[in-house]
């Protein structure tokens, strides 16, 4: 707890240092998929020197096309310093060692906490926009998110149950972004009702027994066969599909909290019974 607090304070100090500078940074590097996608939306043309390699993968990133025009780095000190950045934006949970070495070589860093809700995403957007000298764009993006959220919220108590099945039958329980999105669009989250923690696992039997109204899975993932997603072809899921709605929510919409979360919200809203 104290470590997280210290990291946050440190992050704030660094952010303050970032804004105090007259010149906005000219070569920015992000090394976290979620921060990559925010930076791709916020940075001025040419300002972003590199993003993480995951930002280019169309399975994980909604901005894979834009990321393809920018060099990529892995999370190692050498690959980061190689692109000669003047600001590196890290996730607060990234390896302390990497952050320390990057800072030691004289490059400014900004640490942003991992956003697990729409509000945390908006805080991250505002802080990143300030650090990039793009405060106004950040405010516009946050305002747009709030406006879309206002339009998509389904008022009243939840009237349907949804089960989220990610790869390896992992699910999103209480305290996760998906749990928040389900609540906003009028669903009870089965994982939360069963007391499964934010990133716990389901068993197929528990899902079938609860007879949810909606099953959310990534129907695209098993195109590249994986053990993790082979459950989408399980006969039990096929049987359940005749009794419940199935929403294929590609994982790129559910990994990060950000503007794309509202696209996920829209998909959820559209299939609400």
């Amino acid at each position: 707890m104290t470590i997280r607090l210290a990291a946050t304070i440190l992050g704030l100090l660094l952010a303050a240092a970032g804004t105090a500078r007259a010149e906005p940074p000219r070569r920015v590097v992000t090394v976290n998929l979620c921060l990559d996608q925010l930076a791709l939306r916020l940075a001025a043309p040419g300002q972003l020197a590199a993003v993480s390699y995951l930002a280019r993968d169309p399975r994980t990133s909604v901005l894979a096309d834009r990321a393809r025009e920018i060099p990529t780095v892995r999370g190692t000190v050498e690959s980061i310093l190689d692109v000669r950045p003047d600001l590196v934006i890290f996730d607060a949970m990234a390896k302390a060692n990497v952050k320390r070495l990057v800072r030691a070589s004289g490059v400014a860093i900004l640490e942003l906490p991992w956003a697990r809700s729409l509000e945390e995403a908006q805080t991250s957007i505002a802080r990143m926009a300030d650090a990039l000298g793009r405060s106004e764009l950040g405010r516009d993006l946050v305002a747009e998110m709030r406006e879309r959220e206002r339009q998509l919220v389904r008022p009243g108590p939840p009237t349907a149950t949804a089960a989220v099945l990610h790869a390896s039958l992992l699910t999103a329980g209480k305290g996760s972004l998906t749990d928040e999105l389900l609540g906003l669009t009028g669903y009870r989250n089965l994982a939360t009702e069963l007391g499964i923690p934010a990133y716990g696992r389901f068993s197929l039997e528990a899902v079938l027994a609860a007879q949810p109204d909606l099953v959310i899975l990534d129907g695209e993932a098993n195109a590249d066969p994986a053990r993790a997603t082979s459950f989408v072809d399980h006969p039990a899921i096929r049987t359940l599909a005749r009794h419940a709605r199935i929403l294929s929510l590609p994982m790129r919409y559910s990994i990060c909290a950000g503007p794309e979360s509202l696209d996920a919200m829209q998909m959820l809203r559209k299939v609400h019974p």
Binding site: S203, E205, A206, L208, A209, Q211, A236, T239
Partner: peptide, 23 residues
């Protein structure tokens, strides 16, 4: 035995799927 306990009480296809396709 399983988290659903007596799935045949569901009395439908899904209940039988628990027994035949999972257990």
């Amino acid at each position: 035995i399983g988290p659903a306990w007596w799935p045949w009480r569901l009395g439908d296809e899904v209940g039988w799927a628990i027994v035949l396709d999972l257990r």
